[in-house]
């Protein structure tokens, strides 16, 4: 029995093991949780480089910035586990961010209470529509996820510019709606920002969803071998559709969070590095782009690794363009590491 081999595959399912003995060797542990070790190492290095790094202010500010990444990351994770990909996450988040702001500004939904809730739901609905379209094309019509989401990426960005006409939609800071929405991102419970708690709740929900529900089982199963799942008497198309629908809803929620963070919305959101960074985070967290593998908690760690790298570079004043090159290098390294370790297994 090669224990090493077992451990890299879907950490959550092995964590879920309540029965049977599964020996964990040191090298097996390192391979399974290498991203945690990388994260701790990075954290220590960052603390040494800049005294600013390990302060509550910096940490919570960074975490707050990461909220949309983490929410989109959950979407990316479930899609990648099925063996798909979502290149359009930023565009979808952008549309939802803009629609929320637009509704509040132009449709009088900024009065707080029900109206603002309506604007938020409208934003999330945009995400759901994109998700449903993706799901229909990918699960039903069997089109490749890469092409479909490449198309939704472009369409979404176009819609962003159509609605905003290239301007930034500023929410009126005097309205109740503004206070409620922006309060979500600004307010804290103790030292912890509300938005960060919200992200933690989303992560917790997905942790349980992937580990304890039929839906989670089927997502992993479809990613390992869809035809076997179909022959086992399961409507795999339904689950695949749901994955993209839920993914779209998550991008929609992320869009609303983006609006609430700054109190405005612009088409530039569609060009933010959400897909790139979340794909990297999910892969650093052990997911395989071939599907069937991936972990909720380790994906969060992966996304935070990307965040810490960005944060260090900010603290030591690396300009933003070189930062992009460094991040790209990290992604290449992560995928390389993944392919090297999985080659050993097969």
């Amino acid at each position: 029995m090669k224990v090493k081999e077992k451990n890299t595959a879907a950490p959550e399912s092995t964590l879920a093991a309540s029965r049977g003995t599964q020996k964990l060797t040191v090298s097996g542990f390192l391979m399974k949780y290498n991203c945690i070790i990388i994260f701790i190492a990075l954290f220590i290095v960052a603390s040494c480089i800049s005294p600013m790094f390990c302060t509550p202010t910096n940490i919570f500010t960074t975490l707050r910035q990461q909220v949309p990444y983490i929410i989109i990351g959950m979407s990316m994770l479930i899609i990648i586990i099925t063996g798909g990909i979502d290149l359009g996450a930023a565009s979808v988040a952008g549309v939802s961010s803009i629609v929320t702001a637009y509704a509040m500004i132009n449709w009088g939904m900024s009065g707080g209470g029900i109206g603002t809730v309506g604007a938020v739901l409208l934003g999330v609905l945009m995400g759901a529509i994109f998700g449903a379209v993706n799901g229909f094309l990918i699960a039903r019509l069997r089109m490749p996820a890469f092409i479909v989401t490449l198309a939704t990426m472009t369409a979404g960005e176009g819609i962003c510019y159509i609605i905003t006409k290239g301007n930034t939609l500023m929410l009126d800071s005097k309205t109740e709606g503004y206070k409620e929405l922006v309060g979500f991102s600004v307010n804290s419970i103790g030292p912890v920002p509300v938005a960060v708690i919200f992200a933690a709740v989303v992560v917790a929900i997905f942790f349980f969803l992937m580990k304890y529900t039929t839906f989670g089982r089927m997502v992993y199963a479809i990613g390992s071998n869809e035809s076997a799942v179909q022959l086992a008497g399961i409507n795999s198309k339904k689950y695949l559709f749901l994955v993209y629908l839920i993914g779209g809803i998550l991008c929609g929620i992320a869009g609303v969070v983006i609006t609430s963070r700054s109190g405005n919305a612009s088409a530039l959101t569609a060009g933010v590095d959400y897909p790139m960074t979340t794909i990297a985070g999910v892969v650093i967290g052990g997911a395989s782009l071939a599907g069937g593998e991936g972990s909720v908690l380790l994906s969060v760690v992966g996304i935070l690794i990307m965040a810490v790298i960005g944060n260090i570079m900010n603290l030591v004043n690396v300009a933003s363009y070189p930062q992009m090159v460094v991040k790209a290098a990290v992604i290449i390294l992560a995928v390389l590491l993944k392919s090297v370790t999985s080659k050993k297994h097969h």
């Binding site: 879907a10 092995t14 992993y220 799942v229």
Partner: peptide
């Protein structure tokens, strides 16, 4: 390729 999911646990 059709009978089992090779990379999933036995119980699943």
């Amino acid at each position: 390729n059709q009978g089992v999911l090779l990379r999933r646990p036995i119980y699943q």
